[in-house]
Design a protein around this nucleic acid. Structure first.
Lengths: 184, 184
DNA sequence: TTCTAACGATAACAATTGTTAAGAAAACCA
DNA sequence: TGGTTTTCTTAACAATTGTTATCGTTAGAA
């Protein structure tokens, strides 16, 4: 997703080196909270290795919204753009390696490269559209249908994400997920 | 919502008259389908009088996403912007009076007024944010909590929208909605 | 290697919701 | 005004899901 943006940056080797300095690489263990719901987000994370999830909590009820793997950008866009408290938490599911950049540095990049800014707007729109699809599927489809979609179209999730997080993503208890799997 | 845009247009009386010609006023009876799911949307509607709903269907299951009343703009934004089939249907709940404008005319307006285009982008972002809130509430909150929120914060909906559409919005059967109301 | 923690599957019971049906009231149309 | 349609409430029954508990397996840490 951010690959296109990074490709744009790479065309200019001088500034590429300069901006890469703005990215901080770090290793984090499993279950590291990168952002808590209600906190203000000021970072983008680029996953070099590992898996993250974006989730929120309601009365102790854990609901996962999206999983992220290598080569994907992760941020709480709502908080980033509006400087308001984030609706989501971001947490690692596996030990992971991240490249992180803060909002200010990223905005500097956008000033130097209008095409990066435009590309970012495009990415934003696409991500909002993707969220709309997730939203609709969440409402429209039964947990079973959504599980089957994961099996067919997102085998990486099935392979690497613990069942109880998958259940959290489907909005059901882990016990109900076991039942769904047994009904095949 | 489109009020700001229209205020911008009104500042220029010559062009205001020209562009108002692009709006078509029409009266529609209750249960008029303005846009079907899967169709391509090329219109904005501004509600002068009446009430519309945006909804989608899954296996005969009717799920309402949002209600619109007077002074609100209605469009299937996903389809409008992407020229792809709409995820939603738009339908009148009451006999209504609409001011409608097609996409091309609206784009002409945006070319003449860059500030309209920018304002529109802002409105888009706000609407996407609002959809995100609706989305989260839809997942996070129980139908009962969401019904109580309607009673407190959206009495117009309670007053004017038939119960079974409210149930559709809450994602439950009308029978379950009766039960919720009885448990107060 | 051993111990501990995490994870997944399953059973039993309770709670909730959907479907079908029926009846009453309200709204609409000729 | 009378007839029809729509809407809402309620009951009965079925289906689904959640909660609690238990057990076995796997992964991680010392």
């Amino acid at each position: 997703m951010l690959n296109q943006l990074i490709d744009t940056l790479k065309k200019d080797e001088v500034n590429w080196a300069r901006f890469m300095d703005q990215f901080v690489e770090r290793n984090i263990p499993s279950k590291t909270i990168l952002l808590s719901e209600g906190g203000i987000s000021n970072q983008f994370h680029f996953i070099k290795k590992g898996c993250l999830r974006m989730w929120f909590n309601k009365d102790g009820k854990d609901i996962t919204f999206q999983f992220f793997f290598e080569d994907q950008a992760v941020a709480s866009i709502d908080s980033l753009l509006s400087n308001q408290p984030s609706m989501f938490s971001i947490e690692s599911i596996e030990p992971s390696t991240l490249l992180s950049i803060n909002k200010k540095s990223f905005e500097l990049i956008c000033q130097v490269y209008p095409e990066v800014r435009d590309g970012f707007q495009n990415i934003l729109f696409k991500r909002f559209s993707n969220y709309a699809q997730l939203f609709l599927s969440r409402i429209k489809d039964t947990p079973r249908e959504r599980y089957e979609d994961l099996v067919l179209n997102h085998p990486e999730i099935i392979k690497r994400v613990p069942q109880h997080y998958i259940a959290s993503y489907l909005g059901i208890s882990p016990i109900s997920l076991s039942r769904i799997k047994n009904r095949k």
